[in-house]
């Protein structure tokens, strides 16, 4: 008896065993081919399904839980980045004082609420919000991290500040010990509501499992990260770096005219 071992199953070469008919071999080959095709299709479909994430396949290493300053630093590492000063306006609910700390030694620039200041893009600023009429004796020390800038018409920068509006709910949550993280973004023009609004208090609460920066990136262009908590400085705050590393703050004159909408 002679058989080609390299082409036949081993069992048919055993003494006393029986050959497998060519028809059975054909069935085996067809079965193996079908299983292989199914396996390939399954793996391909599986990968396609996994790729359909919320961020459309993009991996965003930054989220709202990263340490303060990290997103700004990464934004500053981009090619062509210029640490320009961006006009920012912080609005307390019913007014109050807003102080911007400019050095680790707690030197600050104090302004009224809704005053327009220029902050450096890519930096983190520690603020103090005080003398709020609705919250007597309450002082909040939020941080504002600028990660991008606007491009207003030249000479009209003060007319287009980045508005940071604090609401009563956010202040109440911060006083109760919770951390409120907001991402302010410039909405995408074709997704904006076709209603002209003069306030910037429109906000929505995201699910805690969602990446705020990714959501803001989908809806537009993230501009700033605002974190509000209830921690207050103590005697050792200066040594512990509570007030940040220091960055320039420029107090701007209020705009003499409001932004005009030019009809096409």
């Amino acid at each position: 008896m002679y058989c080609k071992i390299q082409h036949l199953p081993v069992d048919i070469c055993q003494p006393g065993s029986h050959r497998v008919s060519p028809r059975s071999r054909g069935i085996v080959r067809k079965l193996l081919l079908a299983v292989g095709v199914l396996a390939a299709l399954h793996s391909t479909l599986t990968q396609t399904t996994y790729a359909q994430t919320r961020t459309r396949g993009r991996y965003l290493p930054l989220d709202q839980t990263v340490p303060p300053g990290m997103a700004g630093k990464w934004a500053g590492a981009q090619r062509g980045f210029v640490p320009v000063l961006q006009a920012v306006r912080v609005d307390a609910p019913q007014g109050g004082k807003v102080s911007y700390y400019t050095s680790p030694a707690a030197e600050s620039v104090e302004t009224e609420s809704s005053a327009v200041v220029a902050l450096q893009v890519g930096s983190v600023y520690r603020l103090k919000i005080s003398e709020m009429p609705e919250y007597p004796g309450v002082e909040l020390f939020p941080t504002v991290e600028l990660i991008d800038r606007l491009h207003p018409p030249a000479g009209r920068e003060t007319e287009f500040p980045v508005p940071i509006a604090l609401t009563d709910e956010e202040i109440s949550l911060a006083v109760s010990g919770r951390l409120v993280t907001k991402v302010v973004y410039l909405e995408q023009p074709d997704r904006a509501d076709p209603i002209r609004r003069t306030d910037a208090a429109r906000s929505e609460i995201a699910h805690p499992r969602e990446n705020l920066l990714a959501l803001a990136d989908e809806k537009g262009r993230p501009m700033a990260i605002v974190r509000i908590g209830g921690r207050e400085p103590d005697a050792g705050a200066i040594n512990s770096g509570f007030y940040g590393v220091g960055a320039p703050v420029q107090l701007l004159k209020p705009a003499t005219r409001s932004p005009k909408v030019v009809n096409p």
């Binding site: 990263v66 303060p68 300053g69 990464w74 770096g241 590393v245």
Partner: peptide
């Protein structure tokens, strides 16, 4: 990454935990 965010993050955190 080249130490991005490390300096400001450490300095802003303060290395203290405020217990209330």
């Amino acid at each position: 990454m080249n130490c991005l965010g490390m300096d400001s993050a450490h300095s802003m955190a303060g290395r203290t935990t405020q217990i209330k």
